[in-house]
């Protein structure tokens, strides 16, 4: 039945799995962007660079300190989050009173510095990062072999995404965050330390990027430029989904990853640009984005 499409099922499901993995990364990254944007009104152009830093922290932990994947999964997001706190407190904070575009330009400059610095030290070639022992091998599902690590990435990334959604939409802390996104001055007038919340939000958002970097390390090579092209696709994802809805960011990310995977099967030449084309179509039909509230 599957052969009706003229594509061997192995290839189809293989690409769909790859699409699902890419989609998980899109979801994690666009979720971080959306959380940061909601609170800071800043598009974090350094998001891709910090994703790369996450992968590098994992690689450095392994090669310099002999700390493996599971350590990295905890420590790298913390390190990236801490870096985010420093950047927010030291630099971004000074721009909240001027045009929001300056925040974009600042984070763009930071991205150039971070990526340029890593490229200067580590060169452009990628470093291999091994799959943790526990997740080697795969499971034969009958129609395809599912590599354990890839299955883990999808499940774990989705768990983190939905955990974040739950924390924001269903907890007390999340209600404070939503309120502060809506009207920070009033939330402050209730005795909540909004500047600290802003710092922590930025730290959390970029920690998600760092986490995505660790997850990506065993799949892709760890290289200084691994985040640059990825993040532009994520921007398109964000435009398509709109940043008003957390769930929307997650769903859009995964959906577009899958769509990209399908394109790789049926029309590989277009797979690089399919997300951008969809962005153009969405802009025509629903300018505010699929889940968007214009702001």
């Amino acid at each position: 039945m599957l052969d009706l499409l003229g594509v061997p099922p192995q290839a189809l499901f293989g690409q769909l799995l790859l699409g699902l993995i890419n989609g998980s990364f899109y979801a994690l990254l666009s979720l971080g962007l959306a959380v940061i944007f909601g609170m800071l009104n800043v598009i974090n152009m350094a998001h891709g660079a910090l994703y790369m830093v996450g992968a590098f922290v994992a690689w450095l932990l392994l090669t310099k300190f002999g700390l493996g994947y599971w350590w990295a999964l905890g420590l790298a997001p913390l390190a990236v989050g801490a870096l985010g706190l420093v950047l927010e407190r030291g630099l971004l904070r000074h721009l909240y009173s001027v045009d929001h575009l300056y925040g974009l330009l600042l984070t763009f400059g930071l991205a150039l510095m971070i990526e340029g610095g890593f490229r200067h030290v580590y060169g452009v070639s990628g470093q291999a990062y091994p799959i943790p022992d526990l997740l080697r091998g795969g499971t034969n599902l009958g129609f395809m072999v599912l590599p354990s690590y890839r299955g883990w990435v999808v499940v774990f990334a989705l768990a983190v995404c939905f955990g974040t959604w739950f924390a924001i939409e269903r907890t007390r802390l999340g209600s404070r965050l939503r309120a502060a996104t809506e009207n920070p001055a009033l939330v402050q007038a209730f005795g909540i330390d909004v500047p600290r919340m802003v710092s922590l939000t930025y730290g959390f958002g970029v920690a998600l990027a760092g986490l995505a970097g660790v997850l990506a390390a065993p799949i892709y090579q760890v290289s200084p430029m691994m985040g640059t092209n990825l993040i532009i696709v994520v921007f398109a994802v964000v435009v398509i989904g709109g940043m008003g809805s957390i769930l929307g960011a997650i769903l859009t990310g995964i959906g577009l990853g899958l769509l990209e995977g399908l394109t790789k099967v049926f029309y590989p030449e277009a797979s690089n640009i399919v997300v951008f084309v969809i962005m153009a179509v969405v802009l025509l039909l629903k300018p505010a984005g699929l889940f968007g509230r214009e702001r």
Binding site: R176, T181, F190, I192
Partner: peptide, 12 residues
Amino acid sequence: SLSTAENLMLPP
């Protein structure tokens, strides 16, 4: 973006 209960419980 908050329910009535969340609004009520917001101020610490």
